[in-house]
Amino acid sequence: MTGKMNAKMTAGIRGGLILAVALLIAIVLSLMIGQIRLSASDLWTGLLTGKGPGALTLRVLRGPGVVTAIGAGAALGASGAIFQILLRNPLAAPDVMGFTSGAGLAVVCGVLAGTSLPMPLLSAAGGLAAACAVAILAIKRDGSQVPITLILVGLGIGFLTTAGNSFIVTRLPPEQAAEAQRWLTGSLAARDWGHAAQVFGCGAVLAVILAIQVRSLGLLELGDDLATGLGLKSNRARLKLAGTGVLLAAAGVAVAGPVPFIALMAGPLGMRITGATQPGGRIVSAAVTGAIITVLADLAARSIVPGLQLPAGVMTGIFGAPYLLWLLSREMEAGDI
């Protein structure tokens, strides 16, 4: 028994190390590659002395974007894992179910209306509204709520909010419209330290809240009866966890736009690498994996066409969709859907 546990622990540690190294490599590559290519030693000198092209890149050109990408990716990844555990379905991610595009819609509406409300607040309001709409509309006539209906209704809310977004975009003047279209695809271009601080600030608060709630997520996994027997008010706990999940996704959307498929991919990929089975471990590995995916997607979007910055969301769309297809075919063979 203990030998087995130890082996599992070692595997977990090895997985954690792999993720950490991968994140580090992604960060370094993302800082090195771009319109001007830097060597690792340039970066190192810049980091130590604060002078030279390395320092400029770290401080102004690429540093803020990379840090924002890490924060946004981690928030989206963690959010995805929460819903995947909560609904016990790998398809149940905030981007598949329309929460992220709802958050994006609220931000764009706010910008159009010229409000001075901060972006995370708008984004949170939009995400929560979309989530409530999905939750309510997915209740069937007999009062039951099945995950597959939640996912389908969520897709529908996603279609609706996406249409709302393109409606709003047509109302903007041309330059602003192009900018808004980019942001709605999910973009990390021209981020500054303010964005980075914002996503890490919101993320830190939500991480603390989530750490308190993680125990109830573990209990819910045992099934409602057992969880209630152990003294958990399961419906209330589920609602609180979903709220935290939506807010995490909204924090990511506020700085990076509704980047698709990160929340969907991060959880299962992270779990595969670390072998984590407990909710806490799954969420942490999803957050790190989300950060890696986002940093790499942004890097690819910046460097695939020389001299041009594509929105990162285009990359996650191109690589995330085949993942969704693969997931579908696997689920089908397992007979789950």
């Binding site: 498929f261 769309g317 995330g320 085949p322």
Partner: peptide
């Protein structure tokens, strides 16, 4: 999924 990929 297919639509998302192709339109991306």
């Amino acid at each position: 999924a297919l639509s998302a990929m192709l339109l991306s």
